[in-house]
């Protein structure tokens, strides 16, 4: 498998905070890479670096051998890498169709460029929003707006799509449909990196999973390997106090971040960590 997207020891520091610390990764053509980790692990920061909207402190990201410019997001879109946002950001006063057309007009030139509306409607049809094309994003449900976010990104003709928690916050039925959609997007030829807190979603659809904790990569492998990895279990569930541990270095000041059901990670944000 040829590597399409490569991260070479990517670091992103905010002052003394090491949001992403020496993370390397590869994404093959037609692969889905899951990116998990407790809240504050640096997943979204890694996304921002990979999408070129934030420059890396050290290291670099290569798309097809060419470095992704860290100066502004729009350049990497033209290179073929597009991201969605955890909190959806549709253009509120543009119709659903116009939202997608923005992506079409300003994205990577590709097939179907002669007929913008047809192309955009085709994407909306694929994503399941065709009958809503002339509504405003505010009239859609959350699931609809998340679909719109993905549709708009798809319209830019990306080779790599970075999905930031598209399943989180949806009902189980909607989530299941979305997972199916992600698989279909991959089958259409777009490689995907997805951040996700909903475990069964990310485990079910990913070819490989990478786990971040405190900006460091702690595990990588198939979903089965990763869930059994002791450090991953520790990062999510914390250490058992009764268990004698020989490496008690309080370096990270591990609190019970994201403790309990990993799927409840969203809620953990709102609760102050006691």
């Amino acid at each position: 498998m040829s590597a399409l997207l490569v991260g070479e020891s990517v670091c992103k520091y905010f002052g003394g905070l090491r949001a992403v610390d020496d993370v390397s990764f590869t994404l093959g053509e037609g692969e889905i890479l899951g990116l998990i980790g407790p809240n504050g692990a640096g997943k979204t920061t890694l996304f921002s670096v990979a999408a070129g909207s934030v420059p890396a402190t050290r290291g670099r990201v290569l798309l097809d051998g060419k470095q992704v410019s860290g100066k502004s997001g729009h350049r990497s879109v033209h290179q073929g890498i597009c991201r969605t946002h955890q909190i959806v950001r549709p253009f509120a006063r543009l119709s659903v169709l116009d939202n997608v057309l923005v992506g079409h007009h300003y994205g990577r030139p590709g097939p179907g460029h002669g007929r913008p509306v047809d192309h955009a409607m085709g994407i909306l049809d694929f994503i399941g929003l065709a009958d809503r094309a002339h509504q405003l994003p505010g009239e859609l449900t959350l699931a609809g707006r998340k679909r719109l976010e993905v549709a708009r990104a798809l319209a830019t003709g990306p080779r790599v799509l970075l999905l930031d928690e598209v399943v989180a916050g949806l009902t189980p039925v909607e989530a299941q449909r979305f997972v199916e959609l992600i698989r279909q997007i991959r089958d259409r030829g777009t490689s995907i990196v997805m951040i996700e807190h909903v475990m069964h979603a990310v485990m079910g659809v990913s070819d490989r999973v990478m786990v971040l904790d405190h900006g460091r990569q702690i595990a990588e492998g198939t979903p089965e390997q990763v869930v059994k990895h002791p450090q991953v279990i520790e990062a999510y569930l914390g250490r058992d106090d009764d268990e004698p541990n020989d490496h008690d270095e309080p370096t990270h000041g591990d609190g019970p971040m994201g403790a309990g059901d990993p799927a409840s990670g969203q809620h953990a944000k709102e609760k102050p960590d006691a």
Partner: peptide
């Protein structure tokens, strides 16, 4: 024109516009 669409996108959300390929500057 398509420029107008890009301008509206910038008006709505600069960062989101940049993330789908519009060059706001």
């Amino acid at each position: 024109s398509r420029i107008g669409l890009g301008l509206l996108a910038i008006k709505e959300d600069v960062e989101a516009a940049s993330d789908v390929g519009v060059n706001p500057t």
